[in-house]
Amino acid sequence: MIRVVFATSLAVALSGCLETLVQVRDAVLNPDPEVEMTVPRVNRKAIEDADLAAVLMLSPTIGIGTVGIAVQMRDGRIIYNSNENRSVTLEGGLIYSTLGLGTNLQAVTSQNNDPLITEARAGQWPAKVTRTYHFSGRGTAFDKIVTTCTNQTSTRADVEIASATRDVVAVVETCQADAGIGFNNIHYLDAGTGRLWRSIQWTGPVQGNIQIDVIEQFDPDA
C-alpha cells in the first residue's frame, strides 16, 4: 500500500516538472512576455474640468497602460502618479524616472541644455545629446549606462492624443551606448512651441521603451 502512495506522489511530482520548466522559463529567465497592451479610456473632459495635468503612460513590456496625474513637483521635475501608484517623473519632456512599469528607472542625467528637457523646437536641437541612465544594481550605487543620441527631424503631421488633435513635428533620436545597446526615441513636439505631446523613450535594457502621451500639460501658474 505504501508503495502505491509513494508512486502516486512521485507521479504527481513528475507531472509538475513540465509545468515547472515553463514557470522557470517565464519567471526565472524573463523571456519577452507575450503581453497584451490594455489602453485605458481617457475622460478628457473630466481631466480638464478638474484642471489636472495628466499623462497617459504605456509600458509594452508588462502590457500596462494607465493615466497619471501630476501629484508632486520636486527639483523642477513633475511626478505623475496613477491610482495603482505607477509613476513617471518628467523633466521637461525627458522621462527622468519610472516606478511600477517594469524594472524601474532610477534617474537620467543629461548634458546642459538637453533639448528634451528645455523643450526646444524641432530644428533647434544640437546634433548630439549625451544622457546617463541610472538603474538599481547591487549595493547602494546605481548602475549607469551612458548613451549618445543623434537626431533627425521628420515632417509636420497631426496626431490624436486622448481625443484631441495636435499639430506636431516628429524628432527621431538614434542612440548608442557603450555596452552595445542601441535604441530609438521618437518625440512628437508641438509645431509651434516645441513642447512635448507624445514621446516613446527608452527607459532601460529590460523595461525598453515607454510611451508618454501628454493629455493636459502642466502649467506652473495654474
Partner: peptide
C-alpha cells in the same frame, strides 16, 4: 544557465510603491 544579477521584470506586478512625501 542563469544570471542572478539579471534585472528582473515582474510581469505580474499589480501596483507601484506609494509616493514619498517630504
Amino acid at each position: 544557465d542563469a544570471n542572478p544579477a539579471r534585472p528582473f521584470v515582474q510581469p505580474h506586478i499589480t501596483r507601484g510603491p506609494y509616493p514619498y512625501i517630504e
